[in-house]
């Protein structure tokens, strides 16, 4: 039990970062940065899901943004159909997306490596078309709930009506997401995943139900993606299919690798690259097209030079700075 709740130095740093994000960051930010950081928080949660699958099981999901869209769709649908509070919508959207992730996983799990990645890419392509065709509910009638003219309002959580409070809320949700992953890692599923990652044959021989645990992992990625989508819907009040293109799903995975899939810092770096870098380039007045070029070049550079991701590089740098730590680690 002590082991379960033991907080590692990295864990302390993570909690500290979250505390900074919740307590200090919102009051430092103006409206623009609040909006940027809120979307960054939503995507952080989604990236956490995709990075976790990659780091723990070596499974590549190229459909995470599509799953966000599913979660966002469900949250909007519930919001406009019923009077549930935001938390209920969030929980239902995340759960339904988790189930969606399972359904997606069952046939996909026979595949490995590139083929698994490709079948998820096909799912992302399909979801992109579905979102573009049916759009996101905005208070209209019928199952698809789309109306023309301005849409109905989306209810935010009652404790987080203002932009500042909503940013805090999103960061708190992201923290919960990371804790959920960490908890799984320290319990039975984590041990099973470690074994599967090493060798599926060995895992099977050891009596691990490989299908169950792989599906479970997919479900967690779906849960986090769905929650991220619902939170994004709460941030904007509406969603647009342009956010959920298949290419964005590929991009999210690429950034998770670039940031470093093995640590929370990596997910944070990835989310910052995805949302904060373009915002900074925009403020500097860089042409939106050129910032694409800078973004792509940065991505390539990081993939080439940083095998453990940017976070891994940074952490190595820190370790080198403190020789005592190095000695202890050795």
């Amino acid at each position: 039990m002590r082991q379960l709740f033991h907080v590692t130095p990295s864990g302390w740093a993570g909690l500290g970062t979250a505390a900074f994000g919740i307590l200090i960051l919102p009051s430092l930010s103006n409206s623009y940065w609040l909006s940027v950081f809120t979307s960054m928080g939503c995507f952080l949660l989604a990236i956490a899901g995709v990075a976790f699958m990659y780091a723990r099981l070596g499974m590549v999901s190229l459909t995470q943004v599509g799953l966000m869209g599913v979660g966002g769709w469900i949250a909007l649908r519930l919001n406009h159909a019923f009077d549930f509070p935001f938390e209920v919508n969030l929980a239902l959207a995340a759960t339904a997306t988790m189930i969606f992730g399972w359904i997606l996983a069952l046939p996909a799990l026979r595949m490995r490596g590139l083929y698994l990645a490709l079948v998820t890419l096909m799912a992302a392509g399909g979801l992109e078309i579905i979102f573009a065709t049916f759009q996101f509910p905005n208070g209209g009638a019928g199952f698809w709930g789309v109306q023309t003219g301005s849409g109905a309002a989306f209810r935010r959580p009652w404790i987080a009506q203002s932009a500042q409070a909503y940013l805090r809320y999103v960061i708190a949700c992201a923290l919960l997401g990371f804790l959920c992953i960490e908890l799984h890692r320290r319990l039975q599923p984590g041990r099973a995943w470690a074994l599967i990652r090493r060798s599926e044959a060995a895992a099977m021989a050891a009596g691990v139900n490989v299908t169950l645990y792989k599906t479970w992992a997919f479900g967690i990625a779906g849960l986090l993606g769905g929650a991220a989508g619902a939170l994004l819907a709460g941030s904007l009040g509406l969603l647009d299919d342009g956010t959920f293109r298949a290419s964005e799903s590929v991009m999210i995975f690429a950034l998770a690798v670039v940031g470093g899939a093995h640590s929370w810092q990596g997910a944070l770096v990835a989310a910052a690259l995805y949302k904060v870098l373009p915002a900074v380039l925009n403020i500097w007045g860089v042409d939106a097209n050129l910032s694409f070029v800078i973004f792509g070049a940065g991505l390539l550079h990081a993939v080439i030079t940083a095998p453990q991701g940017i976070a891994g590089q940074l952490l190595d740098g820190l370790r080198r700075l403190s020789p005592k730590r190095e000695a202890r680690d050795a």
Binding site: S35, S235, L236, L239, T243, A279
Partner: peptide, 10 residues
């Protein structure tokens, strides 16, 4: 991009 649009207005 809807997020960029919201950020521009912010």
């Amino acid at each position: 991009n809807p997020e960029a649009a919201a950020q521009a207005a912010a």
